[in-house]
């Protein structure tokens, strides 16, 4: 194999990475562009256009630290945002859905760019919802363990200086060795560490759970206060309209308002043909089917044709199976 890498592949610069003398991994890099998405709110602040490098085919076991070190020669790295950052198994589905709904262009460049922007944004949203800023929650300490990403995945590297991008994209004369982070174990030691970290001491679990519940209750109480309304009380707005809400956990509306039928009830009603309609159906006079002689004839005729059709179908089936020599028992 000739050792010359092409200088560009579909607009991406291949960066050879040496893991060992015999093995070269290829990173594909390009400058990150926000293009279309600029119109949307708060985008540029997340991934600054001018100093973000977009990477494809990140090694599955790469850590933020390793990437930072690897690009050190090009400049200081502020942070690394991995694809999806969270639940690996969902990224694919999501990206597919996105390309469906948002109609991303087929061009790989823009696809890559737009695709990646979404993850951090979403991630952020999710975390905001899940953890109401309650300083009291005591986290369960988690050691620095590698997170194995899917192979061929992407990442954004945000440099401190915009000038680093050009340096990072300049072709390498020979593969640059990968800086392995010795603090994050791999292989068997990784699994042992992971096993241990998932079984924290009981007092840590207790502290975490208790503090979480405290903060949760605090948030709930705050919400309740905010809504000013008490359980079961009708909420009447300035115009005199009463707010109607669905029943809460145990038939009572949590945040106030007048309760209506539970969802279950509604679903059932719909399944069996919702209330009104079913009553209507019953009353509707049924068309008499066997009233006129022609109806009877027609019915019989149809039946007979049906019989014949089935018969012919059976015959065709058997003939087909016969052709495949199925009826040679031995």
């Amino acid at each position: 194999m000739s050792n010359t890498l092409p200088s560009s592949v579909s607009g991406f610069t291949p960066i050879p990475v040496a893991y060992s003398s015999s093995c070269t991994h290829i990173l594909y890099a390009t400058a990150h562009k926000n293009k279309k998405k600029l119109t949307r709110k708060n985008k540029s602040s997340t991934l600054p256009d001018e100093r973000t490098l977009f990477l494809v085919n990140v090694p599955p076991d790469a850590t933020e630290r390793e990437i930072t070190q690897f690009f050190n020669p090009a400049g200081l790295v502020e942070r690394v945002v991995f694809e999806g950052q969270g639940f690996d198994e969902n990224t694919r589905v999501e990206s597919e859905n996105e390309s469906d709904s948002e109609e991303i262009e087929e061009e790989s460049e823009s696809e890559g760019g737009s695709d990646d922007e979404n993850h951090p944004r979403k991630k952020r949203k999710v975390t905001k919802e899940s953890k109401p800023a309650a300083p009291e929650v005591k986290p369960i300490p988690f050691p620095t363990l590698r997170t194995y990403h899917k192979t061929g995945g992407t990442a954004h590297v945000i440099f401190l200086e915009p000038s680093s991008i050009a340096r990072a994209l300049s072709p390498l004369s020979k593969p640059r060795p990968w800086p392995s982070d010795s603090e994050a174990p791999s292989g068997l030691s990784h699994y042992k560490a992971l096993y241990a970290s998932l079984r924290p001491p009981l007092d840590v679990v207790k502290d975490h759970a208790d503090s979480y519940m405290e903060s949760y209750e605090y948030e709930q109480a705050k919400k309740k206060q905010k809504s000013k309304h008490k359980k079961g009380e009708a909420i009447v707005d300035e115009d005199g309209f009463t707010l109607v809400t669905r029943g809460g956990a145990y038939g009572k509306t949590v945040g106030g308002g007048v309760g209506i039928a539970s969802k279950k009830f509604q679903n059932e009603a719909r399944r069996g043909g919702s209330g009104k309609r079913s009553r209507k159906n019953k009353k509707e006079p049924q068309e008499k089917e066997d009233f006129y002689a022609f109806q009877v004839h027609e019915k019989k005729r149809k039946e007979l044709i049906g019989i014949k059709e089935r018969w012919e179908q059976d015959k065709a089936n058997i003939a087909k199976m016969k052709a495949s020599r199925k009826y040679k028992p031995y």
Binding site: S2, L5, V9, F12, P14, V56, G112, T151
Partner: peptide
């Protein structure tokens, strides 16, 4: 295969032979 961001496998460019 042609290069795509979403190729989802670890690849290396086909060398110009």
């Amino acid at each position: 295969k042609p290069f795509r961001v979403m190729n989802r496998f670890s690849s290396t460019p086909v060398r110009k032979n």
